[in-house]
Design a protein around this nucleic acid. Structure first.
Lengths: 241, 241
DNA sequence: CGAAACTTTGAGGTGACTCAAGTGACGTGG
DNA sequence: CCACGTCACTTGAGTCACCTCAAAGTTTCG
């Protein structure tokens, strides 16, 4: 395995985009012990209430994090793409306050919590880059509170699509007009606080007005129109999308 | 001013509850340069889009953070009590992705960003305590996404009240049955994604069933009942509430 | 004491929900 | 390679939680 083909390259790409990592920092990150696991679609990676001693890095595929109410309602709180740390909060918080699942078949790298914490302490630049990643995470959550709390179904779904497209593009995972969209309508519903029936009707309406096409895979047909429906402003992604 | 009466005591109390700070760490935090400002109710402390070079610590009073859509809809994304850092994300993110305002007359302490960042780097324990604070912040945002996305108005409002009561109690700001609740019904509406009219009717209904009393100030009459309406589980506050 | 802000109440409207019944795509095993 | 089971998507009809608009009380505070 050459140095630029380790499972951690996606994460490095993201951290480099913002943090000022030197060659030693990068080498130390590449040297982290990790165990690669190939997982099935829908596989649970972290269970709410657990106390994991390792962190989960998404190497390939898509994942989401979700919470549930005791009455069984489910809310997806974020989507994740290759290069994302799925549960970095477990570095410093003992108990998982939400679950993590794979959306597609995926490769994940498990990194021992202790090694990552030690690295963050020994190398301030790495610690700061990870901290910054957490802050961006939090910024996205704030936007989701706004999205779910204030937008109607049409702009809510459009906003979710714009965010994902922008993040995929920034991560080098494709063009924002044509990117993989493996979520089911039920998952879109769980992420937007709608029902799958209403998501279906709303997607049809967005298709009818030419913003996107819903087929086997959603495709964005008119990016500018979709952005204006969503009132999408990528500032909250802090260029790290 | 004695050492245990600095404006930063509320923050210290919170950081000590979780981080392992030694005497030097605490002394260094107390020695941070800061400018105290007394602000009016509704005063804007941070404006979305700004690039602040200082961080805002709430010393006395209540505050909230909010975002707006271009169409003028407003979503409060968090409430804050004395001891909370209101915009710690500006330590590492240049541009404010949301606004901060005082809910009541308040005292805030402005701390230069550069001093706080330097302290976090020089003293890993302080850096980790602050990082952990950010992670708890993010956990609360996730719970709010669930709250706004999945709960009906009755349990949504009940949940918001339970959270605030639990946090006030943990911060030593009073009993959870009798605590200050200075938000207007419009602000509750902005925080829950409802209208003030509907918040009013829902509060009346909660009053009628004996969970709380809405008068000049909201009072929690039956904590257990309110928790069960809200399905409130404080795990997500990570004991740092 | 007057104005502004906040709360309360009523009446009518609607966006999203629920329930229910298909239809279509896919993978699997016979 | 076709039959079948599963899972996702689609569509219709009726309902309801919450919204909008409007106006009257009440509290706060300068």
């Amino acid at each position: 395995m050459t140095a630029d083909r380790t499972p951690i390259e996606g994460l490095l790409r993201k951290l480099k985009r913002v943090g000022l990592l030197n060659a030693d920092d990068i080498a130390a990150l590449r040297a982290l012990p990790m165990r690669i696991e190939r997982v099935r679609r829908f596989q649970l990676l972290v269970r709410e209430g657990a106390t994991p001693d390792r962190c989960c890095l998404l190497v390939r595929g898509y994942a989401d994090r979700y919470k549930e109410t005791p009455s069984g309602k489910r809310q997806i709180v974020s989507f994740h793409i290759a290069g994302d740390l799925l549960d970095i909060q477990h570095l410093l918080l003992a108990k998982a306050d939400h679950s993590v699942e794979a959306i597609t078949p995926a490769d994940v790298a498990w990194i021992p919590k202790s090694d990552l914490v030690r690295l963050a302490q020994e190398r301030p630049a790495v610690g700061q880059a990870l901290w910054r990643d957490c802050l961006i995470d939090a910024s996205v959550f704030r936007e989701w509170v706004l999205n779910v709390g204030q937008r109607d179904s049409r702009s809510r779904i459009a906003h979710m699509l714009c965010e994902l497209a922008a993040r995929c593009e920034a991560a080098g995972l494709g063009d924002r007009h044509v990117f993989a969209f493996p979520m089911t309508q039920q998952q879109i519903a769980d992420a937007t606080g709608l029902t799958s029936v209403h998501v279906n009707r709303t997607l049809k309406a967005l298709d009818a007005e030419g913003a996107l096409s819903t087929g086997r895979q959603i495709r964005i047909r008119n990016w500018d129109h979709l952005c204006s429906i969503a009132a999408f402003d990528p500032t909250y992604l802090h260029a790290a999308a």
